[in-house]
């Protein structure tokens, strides 16, 4: 049903194999689960809506896998703090660490320290600068997500000349940069589609509002807007309302809205027909995979090899047309 269900089932199979070793011992039901008795530490760069969603999903995964203790540390956008928190986890001899790094270079030091302490460390969502150095990483595929929406825009407008506003994320982060690159690659080769405003926002709604207002001011005939994160949808609605163009898909003055994340705002936007297409991030798979993998590495002492080291899970496209089927895979619809 969910696209990630497939990988989940594979992993469930692997769990079963691992569980067989324990099968002979009659024990409390929870003890049969792979994560029994483990303490997993999760180190986050910051808290926001996406992280809250991920935390909920991690807790679910921990419960399914029988992990009794999960500690969550938040670095609040401070690289030194995060390094200290990871060390604190290592000092407590936790069984494994899952990290969303704030600084894609400083995490390399954390990886080295974890290895020296013989504690598995896996990464999620934001990749280290050199992804080859981490034993396991699970993230979305921001380039592919942007590309999908770019191609969708091409399908939606055909040959019609269209001006586009590009509401970018933070341009110092891989996800922000790659979503933007992917989108631009998706519309490349279609000279009728032209980006008239690049608006960097650092993922904050206030610059998104100001930028969208200014873009509509400079281009009253704006035809579409690409939004790098659902967190910036409310200000986009606000700016569209101001010029009387907040309309349902297909209405004459409608501005095509495309957005990435699949949070509750994106879900509601597509559900109510105000948004033309969204790409949902595979948070359920990412959180489950990382939790699963860190447990396995702690148990076996072996890390995955070759292609299995990095999972780049493409997001799920959802539109008003496929919403009833697709919504089950959108984390913001189902939590």
């Amino acid at each position: 049903m969910i696209p990630g269900m497939h990988s989940r089932m594979l992993l469930a199979g692997a769990t079963l194999l691992g569980g067989l070793a324990l099968a002979g011992i009659p024990a409390h039901a929870a003890d049969n689960k792979p994560g029994a008795g483990m303490h997993i530490c999760i180190s986050l760069d910051k808290v926001n809506a996406s992280r809250e969603g991920q935390i909920r999903l991690w807790k679910q995964a921990a419960q399914e896998l029988g992990v009794p203790k999960v500690t969550i540390e938040v670095a609040d956008e401070d690289a030194q703090r995060q390094s200290s928190q990871v060390e604190t986890c290592l000092a407590q001899r936790v069984n494994g660490v899952i990290e969303i790094p704030w600084d894609d270079q400083a995490v390399l030091q954390d990886i080295r320290r974890a290895r020296a302490a013989h504690i598995p460390l896996v990464g999620m969502d934001q990749a280290p600068a050199d992804v080859g150095t981490i034993d396991y990483f699970s993230g979305s595929n921001p380039y592919a997500d942007g590309l999908k929406l770019g191609e969708e825009l091409v399908k939606l407008v055909g040959d019609k000349p269209t001006k586009v506003a590009d509401i970018q994320g933070a341009l110092d982060q891989y996800n922000g940069i790659e979503r933007d690159k992917g989108f631009k690659a998706g519309i490349a080769g279609h000279p009728n589609i032209r980006i008239v405003a690049d608006i960097p926002t650092d993922w904050h709604p206030e610059p998104a509002l100001a930028g969208m207002e200014n873009a509509l001011e400079a281009n009253p005939d704006l035809g579409a807007v690409f939004v790098a994160s659902d967190g910036m949808l409310p200000p986009v609605w606000s700016a569209l309302q101001k010029v009387g163009r907040y309309t349902k898909v297909g209405a004459p003055k409608h501005v095509i809205v495309l957005s990435i994340d699949g949070d509750p705002q994106g879900c509601a936007g597509v559900k109510s027909d105000y948004m033309d297409a969204g790409v949902a991030q595979p948070f359920a798979e990412m959180t489950y995979d990382t939790m699963k993998m860190v447990i396995e590495m702690a148990k076996t002492g072996k890390e995955p090899t070759g292609k299995d080291r990095v999972a780049r899970i493409p997001g799920l496209m959802y539109t008003p047309a496929n919403f009833s089927k697709a919504s089950a895979g959108v984390w913001g619809c189902s939590e």
Binding site: V47, A49, E206, G231, P234, P235, W237, S238
Partner: peptide, 12 residues
């Protein structure tokens, strides 16, 4: 004014 303008209250 800000929350009314942007239509959302975020932790940042």
């Amino acid at each position: 004014i800000i929350v009314g303008q942007v239509g959302t209250l975020q932790s940042g």
